[in-house]
Protein backbone atom coordinates (compact mmCIF):
# COMPACT_ATOMS: atom_id res chain seq x y z
CA UNK A 1 0.00 0.00 0.00
CA UNK A 2 3.08 2.22 0.25
CA UNK A 3 2.89 3.07 -3.44
CA UNK A 4 -0.71 4.22 -3.14
CA UNK A 5 0.01 6.19 0.02
CA UNK A 6 2.88 8.02 -1.62
CA UNK A 7 0.71 8.89 -4.61
CA UNK A 8 -1.96 10.40 -2.36
CA UNK A 9 0.64 12.33 -0.39
CA UNK A 10 2.02 13.64 -3.66
CA UNK A 11 -1.37 14.75 -4.94
CA UNK A 12 -2.14 16.61 -1.71
CA UNK A 13 1.23 18.35 -1.75
CA UNK A 14 0.81 19.05 -5.45
CA UNK A 15 -2.59 20.67 -4.81
CA UNK A 16 -1.01 23.03 -2.28
CA UNK A 17 1.82 23.88 -4.65
CA UNK A 18 -0.68 24.54 -7.42
CA UNK A 19 -2.63 27.02 -5.28
CA UNK A 20 0.56 28.91 -4.46
CA UNK A 21 2.08 28.73 -7.93
CA UNK A 22 -1.01 30.06 -9.71
CA UNK A 23 -0.56 33.58 -8.33
CA UNK A 24 3.15 33.57 -9.11
CA UNK A 25 2.65 32.46 -12.67
CA UNK A 26 -0.16 35.00 -13.25
CA UNK A 27 2.09 37.78 -12.00
CA UNK A 28 4.97 36.55 -14.10
CA UNK A 29 2.80 36.35 -17.18
CA UNK A 30 1.62 39.94 -16.79
CA UNK A 31 4.68 41.71 -15.42
CA UNK A 32 7.68 39.40 -16.07
CA UNK A 33 8.52 39.62 -12.37
CA UNK A 34 9.47 36.82 -9.98
CA UNK A 35 7.14 37.68 -7.11
CA UNK A 36 9.00 36.24 -4.11
CA UNK A 37 6.91 38.23 -1.62
CA UNK A 38 3.98 36.02 -2.68
CA UNK A 39 5.08 33.55 0.00
CA UNK A 40 4.59 36.21 2.68
CA UNK A 41 0.92 36.30 1.62
CA UNK A 42 0.78 32.53 2.05
CA UNK A 43 2.08 32.89 5.62
CA UNK A 44 -0.33 35.77 6.31
CA UNK A 45 -3.18 33.54 5.13
CA UNK A 46 -2.15 30.85 7.59
CA UNK A 47 -2.07 33.31 10.50
CA UNK A 48 -5.47 34.80 9.69
CA UNK A 49 -6.90 31.29 9.34
CA UNK A 50 -5.75 30.23 12.79
CA UNK A 51 -6.68 33.49 14.51
CA UNK A 52 -10.19 33.72 13.04
CA UNK A 53 -10.91 30.02 13.63
CA UNK A 54 -9.80 30.27 17.24
CA UNK A 55 -11.77 33.48 17.72
CA UNK A 56 -15.03 32.60 16.01
CA UNK A 57 -15.02 28.82 15.97
CA UNK A 58 -15.93 28.73 12.28
CA UNK A 59 -13.30 27.37 9.92
CA UNK A 60 -15.32 28.33 6.85
CA UNK A 61 -15.50 31.94 7.98
CA UNK A 62 -11.76 31.87 8.62
CA UNK A 63 -11.06 30.54 5.13
CA UNK A 64 -13.12 33.29 3.48
CA UNK A 65 -11.79 36.11 5.68
CA UNK A 66 -8.26 34.96 5.07
CA UNK A 67 -8.70 34.80 1.29
CA UNK A 68 -10.30 38.25 1.22
CA UNK A 69 -7.76 40.01 3.44
CA UNK A 70 -4.80 38.36 1.72
CA UNK A 71 -6.21 39.32 -1.68
CA UNK A 72 -6.43 42.96 -0.67
CA UNK A 73 -2.92 42.91 0.80
CA UNK A 74 -1.71 41.25 -2.40
CA UNK A 75 -3.21 44.03 -4.52
CA UNK A 76 -1.53 46.64 -2.38
CA UNK A 77 1.78 44.79 -2.82
CA UNK A 78 1.49 45.56 -6.53
CA UNK A 79 0.95 49.25 -5.81
CA UNK A 80 3.74 49.47 -3.25
CA UNK A 81 6.45 47.18 -4.62
CA UNK A 82 6.09 46.62 -8.34
CA UNK A 83 4.24 49.54 -9.90
CA UNK A 84 7.03 52.09 -9.27
CA UNK A 85 9.62 49.63 -10.65
CA UNK A 86 7.86 48.53 -13.83
CA UNK A 87 10.33 50.25 -16.14
CA UNK A 88 13.40 48.95 -14.33
CA UNK A 89 15.35 45.76 -15.02
CA UNK A 90 13.53 42.67 -13.67
CA UNK A 91 16.40 42.06 -11.25
CA UNK A 92 15.55 45.29 -9.40
CA UNK A 93 11.98 44.16 -8.68
CA UNK A 94 13.26 40.72 -7.71
CA UNK A 95 15.59 42.14 -5.05
CA UNK A 96 12.91 44.57 -3.83
CA UNK A 97 10.51 41.66 -3.54
CA UNK A 98 13.04 39.56 -1.62
CA UNK A 99 13.64 42.52 0.69
CA UNK A 100 9.94 42.76 1.48
CA UNK A 101 9.77 39.00 2.02
CA UNK A 102 12.68 39.05 4.51
CA UNK A 103 11.13 42.00 6.35
CA UNK A 104 7.73 40.29 6.46
CA UNK A 105 9.08 37.20 8.21
CA UNK A 106 10.40 39.47 10.91
CA UNK A 107 7.08 41.34 11.12
CA UNK A 108 5.18 38.08 11.65
CA UNK A 109 7.59 37.21 14.44
CA UNK A 110 7.18 40.60 16.10
CA UNK A 111 3.38 40.55 15.88
CA UNK A 112 2.55 36.91 16.52
CA UNK A 113 5.59 35.61 18.44
CA UNK A 114 8.48 33.37 17.42
CA UNK A 115 6.92 30.05 18.36
CA UNK A 116 3.95 30.14 16.05
CA UNK A 117 0.25 29.59 16.67
CA UNK A 118 -1.92 26.46 16.65
CA UNK A 119 -5.62 25.69 16.43
CA UNK A 120 -7.28 25.26 19.83
CA UNK A 121 -9.76 22.79 18.35
CA UNK A 122 -8.37 21.71 14.98
CA UNK A 123 -11.41 21.36 12.69
CA UNK A 124 -11.99 18.66 10.03
CA UNK A 125 -10.00 15.95 11.75
CA UNK A 126 -12.49 13.10 11.05
CA UNK A 127 -11.12 10.19 9.02
CA UNK A 128 -12.66 8.63 5.95
CA UNK A 129 -11.58 5.23 4.72
CA UNK A 130 -11.32 5.58 0.97
CA UNK A 131 -9.85 2.14 0.34
CA UNK A 132 -9.30 -0.73 2.73
CA UNK A 133 -6.34 0.27 4.85
CA UNK A 134 -6.05 3.79 3.46
CA UNK A 135 -7.84 6.53 5.34
CA UNK A 136 -7.60 10.27 4.98
CA UNK A 137 -8.62 13.14 7.23
CA UNK A 138 -11.34 15.50 6.02
CA UNK A 139 -8.77 18.28 5.97
CA UNK A 140 -6.63 16.45 3.42
CA UNK A 141 -9.60 15.78 1.18
CA UNK A 142 -10.68 19.42 1.47
CA UNK A 143 -7.23 20.55 0.24
CA UNK A 144 -7.61 18.62 -2.98
CA UNK A 145 -11.28 19.55 -3.49
CA UNK A 146 -10.56 23.21 -2.81
CA UNK A 147 -7.62 23.27 -5.22
CA UNK A 148 -9.59 21.60 -7.99
CA UNK A 149 -12.61 23.85 -7.37
CA UNK A 150 -10.73 27.15 -7.25
CA UNK A 151 -8.41 26.36 -10.14
CA UNK A 152 -11.15 25.13 -12.45
CA UNK A 153 -13.16 28.22 -11.48
CA UNK A 154 -10.33 30.43 -12.71
CA UNK A 155 -9.93 28.28 -15.81
CA UNK A 156 -13.61 28.73 -16.60
CA UNK A 157 -13.36 32.50 -16.09
CA UNK A 158 -10.32 32.72 -18.34
CA UNK A 159 -11.96 30.83 -21.18
CA UNK A 160 -15.59 31.92 -21.08
CA UNK A 161 -15.83 35.48 -19.84
CA UNK A 162 -14.92 38.80 -21.41
CA UNK A 163 -12.70 39.60 -18.44
CA UNK A 164 -10.89 36.32 -18.91
CA UNK A 165 -10.35 36.97 -22.59
CA UNK A 166 -9.09 40.48 -21.79
CA UNK A 167 -6.69 39.03 -19.23
CA UNK A 168 -5.29 36.50 -21.68
CA UNK A 169 -4.90 39.20 -24.32
CA UNK A 170 -2.96 41.34 -21.84
CA UNK A 171 -0.60 38.49 -21.11
CA UNK A 172 0.12 37.93 -24.79
CA UNK A 173 0.61 41.58 -25.76
CA UNK A 174 0.01 44.34 -23.20
CA UNK A 175 0.35 47.18 -25.72
CA UNK A 176 -2.10 45.72 -28.22
CA UNK A 177 -4.50 44.90 -25.40
CA UNK A 178 -4.31 48.46 -24.09
CA UNK A 179 -4.92 49.94 -27.52
CA UNK A 180 -7.96 47.71 -27.98
CA UNK A 181 -9.46 49.44 -24.96
CA UNK A 182 -8.59 46.91 -22.27
CA UNK A 183 -7.77 48.53 -18.95
CA UNK A 184 -4.45 46.81 -18.28
CA UNK A 185 -4.21 48.12 -14.72
CA UNK A 186 -7.54 46.52 -13.75
CA UNK A 187 -6.36 43.20 -15.20
CA UNK A 188 -3.17 43.44 -13.14
CA UNK A 189 -5.04 44.23 -9.95
CA UNK A 190 -7.47 41.42 -10.69
CA UNK A 191 -4.64 38.93 -11.18
CA UNK A 192 -3.02 39.98 -7.91
CA UNK A 193 -6.42 39.65 -6.23
CA UNK A 194 -7.05 36.10 -7.45
CA UNK A 195 -3.48 34.88 -7.10
CA UNK A 196 -3.14 36.25 -3.58
CA UNK A 197 -6.51 34.89 -2.48
CA UNK A 198 -5.41 31.42 -3.60
CA UNK A 199 -2.12 31.77 -1.76
CA UNK A 200 -4.13 32.73 1.32
CA UNK A 201 -6.29 29.63 0.93
CA UNK A 202 -3.15 27.49 0.60
CA UNK A 203 -1.78 29.09 3.78
CA UNK A 204 -4.96 28.25 5.71
CA UNK A 205 -4.92 24.65 4.45
CA UNK A 206 -1.24 24.13 5.30
CA UNK A 207 -1.78 25.63 8.75
CA UNK A 208 -4.59 23.11 9.24
CA UNK A 209 -2.58 20.11 7.98
CA UNK A 210 0.40 20.93 10.23
CA UNK A 211 -1.76 22.49 12.97
CA UNK A 212 0.90 25.17 13.18
CA UNK A 213 1.75 28.52 11.66
CA UNK A 214 5.15 30.06 12.19
CA UNK A 215 6.94 33.12 10.82
CA UNK A 216 9.20 31.12 8.50
CA UNK A 217 6.58 28.79 7.02
CA UNK A 218 6.64 30.73 3.73
CA UNK A 219 10.34 30.28 3.02
CA UNK A 220 10.43 26.81 1.51
CA UNK A 221 7.17 27.15 -0.49
CA UNK A 222 8.38 30.45 -1.92
CA UNK A 223 11.52 28.97 -3.42
CA UNK A 224 9.76 25.84 -4.55
CA UNK A 225 6.96 27.77 -6.17
CA UNK A 226 9.59 29.67 -8.16
CA UNK A 227 11.04 26.34 -9.26
CA UNK A 228 7.54 25.19 -10.21
CA UNK A 229 6.70 28.13 -12.44
CA UNK A 230 10.05 27.86 -14.17
CA UNK A 231 9.53 24.14 -14.58
CA UNK A 232 6.11 24.78 -16.12
CA UNK A 233 7.54 27.28 -18.62
CA UNK A 234 7.41 30.77 -17.08
CA UNK A 235 4.03 32.43 -17.32
CA UNK A 236 2.33 29.28 -18.61
CA UNK A 237 -0.57 28.58 -16.24
CA UNK A 238 -1.28 25.07 -17.46
CA UNK A 239 2.42 24.20 -17.28
CA UNK A 240 2.61 25.46 -13.70
CA UNK A 241 -0.28 23.24 -12.66
CA UNK A 242 1.25 20.17 -14.33
CA UNK A 243 4.59 20.98 -12.70
CA UNK A 244 2.97 21.38 -9.25
CA UNK A 245 1.40 17.97 -9.42
CA UNK A 246 4.55 16.36 -10.85
CA UNK A 247 6.71 17.92 -8.16
CA UNK A 248 4.34 16.87 -5.36
CA UNK A 249 4.49 13.26 -6.49
CA UNK A 250 8.24 13.24 -7.21
CA UNK A 251 8.95 14.67 -3.77
CA UNK A 252 6.87 12.12 -1.95
CA UNK A 253 8.57 9.24 -3.77
CA UNK A 254 11.96 10.92 -3.72
CA UNK A 255 12.00 11.32 0.06
CA UNK A 256 11.60 7.56 0.40
CA UNK A 257 13.93 6.37 -2.35
CA UNK A 258 16.71 8.98 -2.59
CA UNK A 259 16.22 10.61 0.82
CA UNK A 260 19.60 9.31 2.02
CA UNK A 261 21.40 11.25 -0.74
CA UNK A 262 19.42 14.48 -0.93
CA UNK A 263 17.12 16.22 1.50
CA UNK A 264 13.51 16.82 0.55
CA UNK A 265 13.92 20.43 -0.51
CA UNK A 266 16.79 19.82 -2.89
CA UNK A 267 14.95 17.01 -4.71
CA UNK A 268 12.73 19.68 -6.25
CA UNK A 269 15.74 21.59 -7.55
CA UNK A 270 17.55 18.48 -8.77
CA UNK A 271 14.44 17.67 -10.79
CA UNK A 272 14.23 21.27 -12.01
CA UNK A 273 17.82 21.31 -13.24
CA UNK A 274 17.45 17.94 -14.96
CA UNK A 275 14.33 19.10 -16.80
CA UNK A 276 15.87 22.43 -17.81
CA UNK A 277 18.91 20.70 -19.26
CA UNK A 278 16.66 18.75 -21.60
CA UNK A 279 14.01 21.43 -22.12
CA UNK A 280 15.43 24.92 -21.37
CA UNK A 281 12.02 26.48 -21.96
CA UNK A 282 10.29 24.38 -19.28
CA UNK A 283 7.89 21.44 -19.52
CA UNK A 284 5.32 23.32 -21.58
CA UNK A 285 6.56 26.24 -23.62
CA UNK A 286 4.77 29.58 -23.45
CA UNK A 287 1.49 29.62 -25.24
Amino acid sequence: MLFFDLCIQGVIQGAIYALIALGLTLVYGLLRILHVAHAALFTLGGYIGVIVTNGSGSFLLALFTSMLIVAVVGMSSYTIIYKPLLNRAPLISLIASIGIFIASEELFRIFFGAYGLSYINPPLQGQIEILSGVSLSHARILVVVLAIGLLSGVGWLAINTRVGIAARATVIDPQMAASSGINVEIIRYGSFFIGSAFAGAAGVMVSLLNNLVEPTMGAVPSYKALAIIVLGGLGNVRGALVASLALGIIESFGTIYVGHLLDRDSIAFAFLIMVLMVRPQGLLARG
Binding site: Y28, R32, L34, P90, L91, L94, Y223, L226, A227, V230, L234, F269, L272, I273, L276, P280, Q281, G282
Partner: peptide, 8 residues
Protein backbone atom coordinates in the same frame (compact mmCIF):
# COMPACT_ATOMS: atom_id res chain seq x y z
CA UNK B 1 14.91 34.27 -15.35
CA UNK B 2 15.46 30.61 -16.15
CA UNK B 3 19.15 31.12 -15.38
CA UNK B 4 18.33 32.91 -12.11
CA UNK B 5 16.21 30.02 -10.88
CA UNK B 6 18.69 27.38 -12.08
CA UNK B 7 21.48 29.01 -10.09
CA UNK B 8 19.12 29.21 -7.15
Amino acid sequence: DFLAITTM
